[in-house]
Design a protein around this nucleic acid. Structure first.
Lengths: 161, 161
DNA sequence: AGCTCTATGTATAAACT
DNA sequence: TAGTTTATACATAGAGC
């Protein structure tokens, strides 16, 4: 009953699948605990041969809930929110111009990373998509990256003038 | 030295941060072990208050490596790849039309989830962006969702005819 | 802020059902 | 395929530096 398992690919198919099932379950639990204990949001994505599609936690429905909320902002609420943000930004800029620039840089890094991780998933999609869909995906990615880049450049320009 | 920790938000700031740091480290290790032992790809994204940006595993550079590869496809390689995909799809369709439909449905769910998680991050960005950037984000998200939806509809239409 | 120590809780490989 | 058991490895809260 020793465990002493060498940290390497398990060549035994059945043992590997059992380990996968067990460890995946534990991993989900750990993620859930971390999120609960520390009040953060976390998700994990696993691409395995045991399933034809990536597995995602937390549930897509939970993620969808957040975005539904985001998309359901009325125009009024948007305006109100923007005013709040404006005040916040003015205060922040007054306090520290450099810090704001740093934040924007961070945001760009994150945005980029997320886009990239999205691309990673897209690449895994490839095996189940047709040529037209493939082209669409590539186009979307490039367009998105250009869009974000120009947005950040715009922010930088406004910031330095 | 008991651990008897209740599974709930830790109100003590310093204790929470310590726990976060420790558990995050372990979580990364677990993900790494799962990936190594079972030969799969996995990543995790954590949105915490302790960092201004989400933290991503594996490293953004690793993700970026994949995406760079993806973007550097020459037109020729793209064409070759697409042919392979077409063969694959034809084979799959011949084998089981329903299974393909199911796969596409799964893909759509995953794609949607990823877009949604991206939106989730965008929402976290809000506090550091100005009103114009906010509008841009909202516009991008809506556009992206519409684009994907229509793409899936297109796939469905082609599939059912 | 991050590290060590240590008691104890937790995860899990292997075996069995 | 999935649950149960058990011995052992691993994770970690709390305390101290």
């Amino acid at each position: 009953m020793r465990r002493r398992v060498k940290l390497a690919f398990m060549v035994n198919d059945s043992a590997r699948k059992i380990t996968y099932t067990k460890r995946k379950k534990s991993l989900i639990k750990k993620i859930d605990e971390l999120a609960t204990l520390c009040g953060i949001e976390a998700c994990a994505i696993v691409y395995s041969d045991f399933h034809s599609e990536p597995e995602i936690w937390p549930s897509p429905w939970e993620v969808q809930r957040v975005v539904t909320k985001f998309r359901s902002y009325s125009d009024f609420e948007k305006g109100k929110k923007m005013l709040n943000q404006e005040s916040f930004l003015i205060q922040r800029i007054g306090k520290s111009r450099e810090q704001l620039a740093k934040l924007e840089k961070h945001n760009w890094e994150v945005e980029k990373s997320l886009i990239l991780s999205q691309c990673l998933v897209k690449e895994n999609f490839i095996d189940t998509l047709n040529p037209n869909a493939l082209n669409d995906l590539a186009f979307d990615i490039n367009e998105m990256l250009e869009k974000i880049t120009s947005k950040v450049n715009e922010l930088d320009t406004n910031e330095t003038t």
